[in-house]
Amino acid sequence: MSNTVPNPIANGPVASRERRGWAWLGLLPFLAFLAIFLVLPTLGVIRKAFLDNNHSYTTKGFTDAISMEGAAFWNSLKISLITAFLGVIFGTTLAYAAATAKRPKWLRSLVSAFSGVAANMGGIILAFLFLTLLGRQGLGTKILTDNGWDPYKSWFSINDFSGVVLVYMYFQIPLMVLVTLPAIDGLKASWREASANLGGTTFTYWRRVGLPVLAPSMLGGFLLLFANAYSAYATAYALNTQSNLVPIKISFFLRGDVTGRSPAPFALATWMILFMAVSMGGYLVLRKRAERWQQSAAA
């Protein structure tokens, strides 16, 4: 390690051992910034979730959050699970199509670049885009109606559950593509050929090698997409300010409660942080696993 060899030019003529202890001070600005603007607010949320209206500590806030806002909890879970699942299916398919397409050569970079943009697109712009397409006055709605099927008379509504799911796919699919493309690249051609050489059909290959190798990435992608959908606020809000989803409820409670005493929004937020921590943690673990297989290092 470069630290153990005293570098008279860069460090000056000070004993390196003394320096090492003080070196951590260099991180102080960074740590302080994070503490003030991330850690303390988060701890504040968790703390307030445990306080009830009488300033005593209790877990009632947590159980109340679920019982009273059960619908929101359930809706958020449903949306996250469904869009994550659909995102995995369509995203993997799209990534595979882009990875294997040989002509034109720029196709794969285009898909990759567009996914980079679309995955981060969210917010209200996305909502507006879909409102013009499939809102009640939307162009797509009109085309469909003119041709025989009025979605609004049927089961669809852009402002409701089905609309939110559809709109979320716009960033879920690209996000899955971004996460999966490297994994698909990691599928070596020689595996496919070795499998054929040993008597395996395409089906055999995918069942015994291809899908198992992709599985950690796909599962990780699922968790990532789940977390992404669960925490999304702006798009849902722009589609319907009264959406019965957890992020909307949090904002609703925060706005309505001037005293800041009710534990409701904080309990909901803590639940959310918990979900995020588990999902992101799982995602990172699975990604490490996938990377290990992608290397198959020859010592």
Binding site: K188, S190, W191, E193, A194, S195, N197, G199, R208, V209, P212, V213, W293, Q294, S296, A298
Partner: peptide
């Protein structure tokens, strides 16, 4: 029904 050995990385990593 031929056996083949590739230059590298041909072992299935998940098995």
């Amino acid at each position: 029904n031929m056996g083949m050995v590739f230059q590298s990385y041909s072992l299935f990593p998940n098995l």
